[in-house]
């Protein structure tokens, strides 16, 4: 079954912002076990590209396909198999980290018991703030809550917009490990970052958005 092979592909993609063209004729295919690092200066369309890949935004021209199907046609499957973290963490300030993870799981139609949620949070070093409302957590800690949500999703495709923002040295190392093991296990990741990220050994491609850096 060739169509069941998990691939994310982009065909002749064009993206405009207002009346400015950010990029056009973009083509690539991402297979299981590969990661794609998107590079480019500020305002070159990295975030716009990621939002096109998630299906939150519609391309001006061209299409994004998941398992060979257009996103619009397969959105239910796609949303089950894709996890996205944008600039915003998407966590509720009034809830504790555990409640946040369980709420997200519920909304996505998964079940997640408290022990599982606790395990993922501890994995990201949040063992000490399980019962605090997220309002009192620091920015980096909240970022970690969002990342543990990623782990809970079991999605083969991760789309991460600047995941390193706000993370300390340990957090960065933690994320590097997570990414590596995710990709080694046949997962896929698309991410943007301005910070150096050492993913030695992983099958990683780089893509530059927009013109050469100015």
């Amino acid at each position: 079954m060739s169509e069941s092979v998990a691939t994310l592909s982009v065909h002749d993609l064009r993206c405009t912002r207002g009346d400015r063209e950010l990029f056009s004729d973009m083509n690539f295919t991402l297979h299981g076990g590969e990661a794609l690092l998107i590079q480019g200066g500020n305002g070159q369309g990295k975030t716009s590209l990621l939002r096109l890949l998630t299906g939150l935004a519609q391309p001006a021209y061209g299409e994004v396909r998941w398992r060979g199907e257009k996103l619009a046609r397969t959105s239910e499957t796609y949303h089950r198999e894709m996890a996205y973290i944008g600039h915003l963490n998407g966590i509720k300030d009034d809830l504790t980290p555990i409640e946040n993870l369980r709420l997200a799981a519920q909304l996505a139609g998964r079940t997640l018991d408290e022990a599982q949620a606790e395990e993922k949070l501890c994995q990201l070093g949040l063992g000490r703030c399980l019962d605090l409302p997220c309002r009192v957590l620091s920015f980096g800690q909240r970022r970690r809550v969002a990342l543990s949500n990623l782990l809970c999703s079991n999605a083969p495709l991760w789309i991460l917009d600047e995941p390193l923002t706000g993370l300390d040295v340990h957090g960065v190392a933690l994320l590097e490990n997570l990414l590596k093991s995710h990709v080694d296990q046949g997962g896929m990741a698309v991410l943007t970052t301005h910070q150096p990220l050492s993913l030695e050994g992983a099958n990683i491609h780089a893509l530059r958005v927009g013109g050469p850096a100015q």
Binding site: H79, M82, L88, G90, A104, L107
Partner: peptide, 15 residues
């Protein structure tokens, strides 16, 4: 919208 959960909700498999 502000904290990003709306995005996440739109990305769930639910219509």
């Amino acid at each position: 919208f502000r904290d990003g959960s709306l995005e996440q909700m739109l990305l769930t498999p639910q219509p």
